[in-house]
Write a protein that binds this DNA or RNA. Sequence first.
DNA 1: GCATCCCATGTACCT
DNA 2: ACAGGTACATGGGATGCG
Length: 688
Amino acid sequence: MLDDEAVVWVKTPSGEALRLVDEYRPYIFAEPRSAEALRELVQLLEQSPFVRGVKVVEGLVGLRNTTRKRLVRIESFGARSIGRVSTLVRRSGLAAEIYGEELPHVQRYLFNRLQIEPSSRAAFNVVGNRIVSAERLEDLDEIRPPPFSLLKIQPQYSGPRLAGLVVRFSGRSQWVEGSGDRVLEGLLELVSSLDPDLIYIPGLQWGRGAPLNEWLERPAVRRAFGRCPDVWRLSQGSAAGRVFLGDIFYGFEPDEYGLAGLVERARFSFTTLGLATRWTSNRCIDSRNLYELARMNIRAPRLEYMEEVRCLVELLERDRGGVTFTPRPGLHENVAVLDFDSQYPSIILKHGISYENPSGGGRLIPSILQPWLERRLRLKRLRKTLRPNSSEELYCTERIEALKLILCTQYGISGCCWNRFGNTLAFEEINRVSREAMLTSKRVAEERGFEIVYGDVDSLFVRREGASRRDYEELAERISAATGLPMSLDRHFKFIAFPRLRTDPDTPALKRYFGLTYDGLVEARGIELRRSDTPAIVREFQERLIRTIMSFDSIGEVMSCSVEEGVKLLAEYERLVDSGLGFEELEIRKVLGRNPEEYSRGLAQSSAAAQLQALGIRLEKGREVRFVYTSQSHPNPLLRVRATQLFSGRYDKEYYRAYLRRAAETVFGAIGVSINHVVKNARLERWL
DNA sequence: GCATCCCATGTACCT
DNA sequence: ACAGGTACATGGGATGCG
């Protein structure tokens, strides 16, 4: 964005990057305090050298207000003067409110003039490099992202010093060696020869990789780095014809495939790729909301969040989430999982739940949701026709996942106080309908002779003796009909087991299970093998254990043969632990929940973090630490673990043997078989 | 002085 | 600055016992 001109970069079918310009005249709306103030304000503004035009218009303000107000639309000459205009209006004291001043200039330009989502396919009518008109072209079935090339740069440090860069471009990695300015010169050459459209430097947004940040501030570097001499707006990700991606990649990966997801996010948010990777989901949705309101000619107040004061009893009754049906612990055969498809978005659509009308009949959220929900379903159907693991399928998956996040977050923020339109009643209503749908499902299933084995929010685990796939599909259809919400058969388990609480074996645990599907897949939730902080050796063991004991034909066989087979496997893995493993198998990964110095206790991760800090590795909350237990019961917490980077090959074998046994107990405990008699005895040799 | 229980803390997970 | 609901390892302190 220049002053009175917007710069639009276009990638042509032949791969050329074109710099186009367009007129940019930002405007704001002022709401005068009175009729008298209106006259004065207009008079004042007409004399201002920054004001290009003043018009009195009628318009709606906010979602809940239905009376039209008289507003002054004030257009300035460009980005530089609009701030002065705002100040002038505010200082005059004549305006009760000012609308439209908080949007970034890019947004204002996109919303009010170009009206094409960035990264869309479009046709431009130009004279020279000046845009005369632009039209968005349909590309609904395009699965590959637009041909934007991505350069990923990962600075490597030795202590605080930059030691080199790992650079990745179109699937290939290379190492740019050297220190200080020499590395950076190498990088400059690389950028000019590869000519990437997008650049991603992990951590740049957070000010990590400080040397690189400072370097990018230098005018000479900027001249060499950009595609033209335009100004940079690094905090918005734009750099004279190239985009610097930020670090927020909810729902997709910052790589070539993830680009497809990023495109969905940017288009939904009606913003640039740079901002779509800098904005949280709330901000992205806010942006789409503002765009839609601008189309409806509604001005958006800064905050329209509403939360009534209510008594505790009512709050307790209404402010709850989804339902879970307690599982029947133990082993079950032939269990189907029926899922509501996009349950919350479907509820919002079907019931018309929105900020302005939380109990139904609202328009804003449903109308925004609908096209994207349809798009996601279309992509899901399309994916079924693609070859598994083909690049087309991966692109498609990234798009589906990115949209899932956007769609679900609509629900998440509907009652959230950070959402300018948030309304707790809307949020509660979605939850209420969801719970009602689950209860209806339960009734329908039980009426037809199915047993509810388990359920959580939008998925129902059902079973009927001898039922076929088709029977389950038919049940899903019945439930769809009864609730008005789409539901389908998701997975079909040959065997599934539900553990009990470790702390209280009489109570079934929620949100955890494991089993084997008829497709031969081990599916598990919540248990050790699903956790990123479980050592790889334990995850591998537990998955093999599940597969082993569930590969028998009947429940009877599983119950009678699994101990023999399972304990044999346990012994095998204990022997692996005894014989010596590498850190890859042993390390535990944990994300720091706070800055290292803020830990009060001698927790394993804080010890590992302290060791790394001593090496000169800077750590802060949100970073991952990896460590191996070396002596769990050591009185000095710092000596209980060792950060992976310092791993010497020595580790606490007893700790890892116990971990394996714990994982085995989760599995055996769930199917109702005790291995205590085996596990209590330290030696398992006789099972080998 | 030691074992055991209780509880806050911290992290990760499910949908 | 996206939600609610859940499990559980860990480690320090309190408690109980001899």
